[in-house]
Each structure stands twice: as C-alpha cells, then as structure tokens.
Design a protein around this nucleic acid. Sequence first.
DNA 1: CCGTATGCTGAGAATGGTTCTCGTTTTAGC
DNA 2: GCTAAAACGAGAACCATTCTCAGCATACGG
Lengths: 145, 145
Amino acid sequence: MAPHAHPTDPSDMPLGPRQRALLAVLQAADAELSGQELHERLKQASQRHGLATVYRNLRLLQRSGLVRCRKLTNGESVYAPLERDDHHLTCVSCGHSEPLPICPVATGGLGLTKVLLQGFKPLFHTFEIHGLCRSCQQSEPLAHG
Amino acid sequence: MAPHAHPTDPSDMPLGPRQRALLAVLQAADAELSGQELHERLKQASQRHGLATVYRNLRLLQRSGLVRCRKLTNGESVYAPLERDDHHLTCVSCGHSEPLPICPVATGGLGLTKVLLQGFKPLFHTFEIHGLCRSCQQSEPLAHG
DNA sequence: CCGTATGCTGAGAATGGTTCTCGTTTTAGC
DNA sequence: GCTAAAACGAGAACCATTCTCAGCATACGG
Ligand SMILES: [Mn+2]
Ligand SMILES: [Mn+2]
Ligand SMILES: [Zn+2]
Ligand SMILES: [Zn+2]
C-alpha cells in the first residue's frame, strides 16, 4: 500500500492493485454488475481474483465512497461506480425491472440539510419504485394464489 | 378496524384469514418486521402459520398493494403496511441505520408523470441514503476486523 | 350425501449469494 | 535477507428464502 496519504479523506484513500482492477471493470461496464459477474469478468481479464477477495474489496471500495451497491429483489447485490446515478421501476409480480430516468436527489427538491443528517456523511442513495408492470396488470387480477 | 369499506383499490381482492392475520400483525407493529419476526409473532398470537405460508402470503399482499418490502444490507427483507412511509440513513461501514424524516415522493417535487411510468402501476417506493455514520468517520480511516 | 377438482398449508429439504476460516502468499520495514 | 503484518483464496459455513409434495379444506355438480 502507498506509504503516505491523509486519513479520513476517502478520495485520498490509496487503492491496492486489485481494488483498482475491480473499479476499472465496473467503470468499463455499461450496467451494474453483481459480485459473481465481476469475478467472472476479472477471470477473463487475466486478473484472477478469489471470490472472497472480490467481495472483500467491494466492501472496502464502498466504505471509500468509490462504489455503490443495491440489492435486487432476488437477493443479489449489484455494484456500480459511485458517480453513476440510476434508478428503476421494478414489478413486484414478475420481477422485471426497467430504468427510471429520474433522481430525487439530483433534482435538488429535497431538504437534505445538515441538521437532518446530524453528522452522517452521505455517500450514495437508492431510489426504486415498485409496482405492477403493464403485462402483470393485464394478467389475472391476482389469482388468489 | 371496520371489516370492510376499504375505499382504496379498484381490484377488491378478498383476503384470506391468514393474510388478514398477517396484515394485522404488521399494522400493530411499530416498525418494519422481517419474515421471521412475523412468523414468531403469529406463533405468540395463537395463529400458528408455517414459515412457507408467511412468506407466500407476504408475496401476495405485496402484489395486492397492501404491504411493502425493503431489503436490509444484511440480506433480510422487512415488511410494513403500504401506507407507512419511512426512509433511513444507513452506514456502509457498521450497518447502523436510523430514520430519515424525508420522503422524495411525498414532497411532490418529482416529475413522476404518466409518460415516465409508461403503463407501470406504482405501488410503493424505497429511498435510502448510505454513507458513514459519525462514529465510523472518526474511527480508523479504513479499519476492517 | 359421494366424487372430483382445485387450491391452501406446512415440515423439511434445497437453494444460492455472501461471508467466514485459516493456512499460504505477498508486502512493508528494517 | 529476515520478520511482522496485511492481503489472498479455496472451500466450508451461513442463513433467509424458496421449493417440494403429501395432506387437508372447500366448492359444486350429480
Ligand atoms: Mn439518484
Ligand atoms: Mn416515501
Ligand atoms: Zn410484471
Ligand atoms: Zn457506522
């Protein structure tokens, strides 16, 4: 690890080579990737990492404010660079998910004051709308089972 | 609670007795409950349900627009009545979570137009801010057990 | 009353993404 | 080089959730 750097500043956080590799794959991807997908892509990129290392470093990158994470309804976690800002509509019936080109934080309408945060340092947010997709509305009006 | 006269949905789905019991426990609770907690509370309420039934009916209640669900960082899902609207600040380092008295949808600033939804029928939303709590900011720059 | 179709239930097994264990390997500092 | 500390990774463990499937309840026509 780099021998200098100032603590408490995430942007100065010295990254190890594996963390840089991880981040590079995330930034090259055109969508959020799961831990397993990342593991797979690193294999192909001749950067074999153990699965434990992938997850370990994803956790560290998240604490460093470089990567964000979101849990899908199926339990998988998907990761993306912090600066990428996307949200989704997800169907509670079939699980289908599509992008939602709106962000409640970017529009600035929220009163996210320092008072509200009370010392908490925000890194990223998740905003997802859950409901019924068009086709699930049309199918059985909720077959009681 | 009156047994009927619920003026909400167009789809007047009759609930089975077990789904009503589930909903009652959720409404009586003062916080979101996990599937396992619900199972436990139903035992104590002399309404023994199998765990499979708890999860099955939670899924149905969600599709019916009566219950909402959110995934915690530890993988658990927690449930609440749809009308309850709360959000949280969650620390990516220690997992500590506290309420955030703000809702981007309630404030109405979002342009959630029909055009954007494209036939999707929204039921509920999740909005969570992730970052570093005060104590994790103070502790080691990136200490990990 | 049957007989049959249909759907709900739940104990236990299976699932599967993530985390943990712990011996090995690499790095940092001298 | 040498030693201590940190990072690594193969495989085991974890555990919330889902699946399986036989048993039970209900509906309804005959
Ligand atoms: Mn956003
Ligand atoms: Mn809200
Ligand atoms: Zn759907
Ligand atoms: Zn914390």
